[in-house]
Simulated assay, not measured.
Amino acid sequence: MFRSRPGRGRAVAITLLAAASLMLTLSGCGVDPLTPQEARAEAGTGDKVGGEAGGAARRVDCAKVKCIALTFDAGPGEDTPHLLDVLKEKQVPATFFLLGSKHVDRYPEVVRRIADEGHEVANHTWSHRILTDLDESEVREELSRTQDAIEKITGRKPTLMRPPQGRTDGTVADVSRELGLAQVLWSITAKDYSTTDSALIRQRVLENAHRDGIILLHDIYDGTVPAVPSIIDELKRRGFTFVTVPELLAPGKAEPGEVYRPEKD
């Protein structure tokens, strides 16, 4: 269903509903998203760059530097090793929201490499079920199973998760809090699930890029990884510094159960 090859029409059709449903889901469930700026403001400015900043070591101060976070959902997949090569060459950290079934369990060596190369490893559920359609025990199963699988490979449980289609509610927030997971949404998407045109993916990201933004891409679709090098090069040319999601929030820390979503300029 989530492979980058033909035969995923139903998955694409379902995913296309994500943007339309996101605002309705959030507005009706009592979950108030926090922006990166709010996360940093709540923590104050006492921590020094390079030290422990809200639990995450900071390379930069995103209150002063033009930061942007590159994130990838629903991997790892066949193209993820090449993506990691690109990120290593260009010295760009990213955040990977990993899918458990047929991904984490199929590519454990890639999961290990993601962690070993300094990227943030995060949770995107076990089987990509829409969490707001599930009861509490089912939500817990979707998240905890992936937590355990990632910990078995990397030695560390994720502290971040992204709900499929960005759909969350009070129950999802409660279970996430119980499991030590903050919820991370996005502000920039190329809708790469709907096209294999790398030039179009690049254009969509660049047109919407903004300071403190979180870019959503998928390393399982054919057009995405080829678009990444030119996206990185152009955003660097515009003065952006790439960071992981924890670095974007520092000196704040992503609090379990909370929802984090940037606002566009």
Rank of each mutant, 00 (worst) to 15 (best):
G213A: 05
S144F: 07
G30H: 00
A53E: 07
T80R: 00
G239K: 12
T189A: 15
H103L: 07
T154S: 01
S194N: 12
I114Q: 07
L179Y: 06
G77L: 01
V225A: 08
T241G: 04
A18C: 01
P93R: 11
F72W: 02
A74G: 07
D197M: 05
K152V: 01
S144H: 08
P6Y: 06
V243A: 01
L248M: 03
N208M: 15
D233G: 07
G28W: 02
P81N: 06
R140D: 15
K88N: 15
N123F: 01
R177F: 02
V65D: 12
V111I: 07
G30L: 00
Y193S: 05
A18P: 02
A20W: 09
P163N: 02
K253I: 02
A74Q: 04
L16S: 08
A57R: 15
L249M: 12
L83H: 11
E258W: 11
V184F: 10
G213N: 09
V104L: 00
A190T: 06
L217E: 13
T168V: 15
P33V: 09
G170S: 07
E247Y: 05
A39T: 03
A227V: 10
M161Q: 04
A63Y: 03
I130W: 12
V111M: 10
E78V: 11
E141K: 14
N208C: 13
L87D: 06
